[in-house]
Amino acid sequence: MAHRIGFHFHPGSSPLHRWDARCKFFAMMALTIGLFKMQFPGLTLFTLVMVLGFTVSRLPLRPFLRDCRTWAYLLTAIFLLQALFHPSTDHVWTSSVPLTWTGLELATLTCWRLLLVLCFATLFTFTTRPKDLQDAITWLLSPIPFIPARRVALMVTLMLRFLPLIMDQADEVRMAMKSRMGGDRKNPLRKIKGMALPIFRKSLARADELALALSARGYRDDLPLRLPPVPGKHLLPTVALALLVLCSTPLVTEAIAGKLPLWF
């Protein structure tokens, strides 16, 4: 069983849990597209939205913060790369230290956006039942010809199921390597092999169990999808969120402020 919160469903009865998965899906898509266009005011607003989402869904904060450690390394690396190697000349101290105000601003924006995307994705997987997610993807893909929507949806759900499990296994292997001084190895090839082989063996065993369980339950992907139409009250928050995203992106705010024509 996975110990982490990221990409993992947790049963609950919060309004976010009850929100139709299809609507949640579109809200998530709007958010991920919009967040990468937003500046500081928009990001502040959506940080508040995210805090509200966390509170409403009753997401346990302690395991979530533990998960954040994995992302912290990644975000620190991205922050340093962006802040230190920006070509601008407005240096914070002296020209010998390659840290510029523009670089700092850009790095802060990038990391803030990434952290928000990660938080919203966590919130999405935390509150969406895998079965609902599978149905939502099937519903989304069924109009596209030549794509086996149900099979693709199953694969996406399985992939999301495997993600936290593999991450847990990677943590276990990393700790086991560390305790055996494996982290001190200088040869990167041995490092990769030492990490990948045990993760792989464990994951493969898990995959076999899953395939057998699907087969035992008589899985078929030619069954028609029977989903009720999207309820209006579920659609409302999606539309509201999409409008909020749209209003928080610079193009629309500039158009409203009169800097750009509205038909731009």
Binding site: T70, M155, L163, L204
Partner: peptide
């Protein structure tokens, strides 16, 4: 659907997850 076919589907999904996890695993190098 045969177990073999399901097994391939699950393995392909497993690899998709591994590729995604691979994006989070950094090994420091020059």
């Amino acid at each position: 659907m045969s177990t073999d076919h399901l097994q391939r589907i699950v393995y392909a999904s497993l690899f998709s997850a591994l590729i995604a996890v691979g994006a989070y695993i950094h090994i420091p190098m020059v």
